[in-house]
């Protein structure tokens, strides 16, 4: 399969009070054509910053990309693109859905107007054709009375409907890559099921690649083919979704999977990860997970583990898997 997006050694930092805080420390991963990749992590893991870096959406923040490459469609490096060039890519080739649809929709603009904007801009359709296209997209995302909804405002719709509108806007120009940042986290369980089902159907029909960012391992297991696990601004593990849940390698992934209460599981006590999620400006030396790790070794406090390739095209950054135990240094 061909790689649609390849992120290499991505480093992103923010400045606060003249202090530079590195949030991403060399993030590596890739997405194949037509694949759903899950990006999993807790707060502060840098998963959302990763998506903003790919879109170069730093306006109004102190964020900037330090180094690395973001190769899209082969050899186009997004890092070298100007804002004008990025604007042509955003919405057209890479589209994004956010967690809270209300903040990304303009409250004083009719749904139709907001939907038509990218269609006019990127597809260059004439008015009547653009409108027809918009209505057909709304129908595609399962919105009843699509024509009427075009004339309504975001606040007249429910949370689930708004997320459908966001998805409609995102897929309106047939993007190659859809980045979905916690698309169902703000929704109720039964509505979340609707939205996830819709996303899955659309992805299969349109052969889109999807980067699904979430903290919910349940959503990952339902939706994704491959998973990248992030911790403290680094990728700690990457694997096929079945392999990951079957035999997680990194102690963090193990802990994460074990700490989720599962239906039907008769367990008096949940396995938990001790300690707290670290603060990006006060990361420990060596492996960032070492202070919370159950399998910690002396070397973990000294040196950061390299990314090690393991069997089945998976990788893991942990000293447990260094060369003699089957890992191959990248």
């Amino acid at each position: 399969m061909e790689k649609l997006l390849q992120v290499e050694k991505l480093e992103t930092q923010f400045t606060k009070d003249k202090q530079k805080i590195k949030i991403l420390h060399g993030v590596n991963f890739h997405i194949h054509q037509g694949e759903v990749l899950g990006l999993v992590g807790e707060s502060g893991s840098g998963k959302s910053i990763t998506s903003l870096s790919i879109m170069k959406l730093f306006k109004g923040t102190s964020g900037e990309i330090n180094s690395g490459r973001i190769l899209f469609n082969g050899d186009e490096d997004l890092i070298n693109k100007s804002e004008t060039e990025m604007r042509k890519i955003r919405g057209k080739q890479i589209a994004m859905i956010f967690q809270e649809p209300m903040t990304s929709l303009n409250p004083v603009m009719k749904i139709g107007e907001q939907l038509l904007e990218p269609i006019r801009l990127h597809l260059g359709l004439e008015e009547k054709k653009a409108k027809e296209h918009a209505v057909s997209i709304l129908k595609k995302v399962g919105i009843p009375r699509a024509e009427e909804i075009m004339n309504e405002f975001p606040h007249q719709l429910s949370g689930g409907m708004r997320q459908r509108i966001m998805i409609a806007m995102a897929i309106s120009c047939n993007p190659q890559l859809l980045i979905a940042d916690e698309p169902s986290t703000a929704l109720d369980v039964t509505i979340q099921a609707q939205i996830l089902d819709l996303m899955k159907q659309l992805q299969q029909k349109e052969k889109m690649s999807v980067l699904l960012i979430t903290h919910d391992l349940g959503v990952v297991a339902e939706m994704c083919e491959r998973v990248v696990v992030m911790y403290a601004g680094r990728v700690v593990e990457e694997a096929d979704v079945f392999d990951l849940f079957e035999s997680p390698k990194h102690p963090y992934t193990k802990g994460l999977i074990a700490s989720v209460p599962k239906l039907g599981q008769k367990k008096e006590k949940l396995d938990s990860i001790k300690g707290n999620v670290p603060n990006p400006s006060e990361l420990p030396k060596g492996c960032k997970f070492a202070p919370r790790c159950n399998d910690v070794m002396p070397i973990c406090y000294e040196q950061e583990p390299p990314e090690l390739n393991l069997e089945n095209a998976r990788s893991c950054s942990c000293w447990l898997y260094k060369e003699e135990r089957g890992g191959i240094r990248v």
Partner: peptide, 12 residues
Amino acid sequence: MELSKAVNSSTT
């Protein structure tokens, strides 16, 4: 958003 949280929490 995670972005602001990450940056803010770092100054605590």
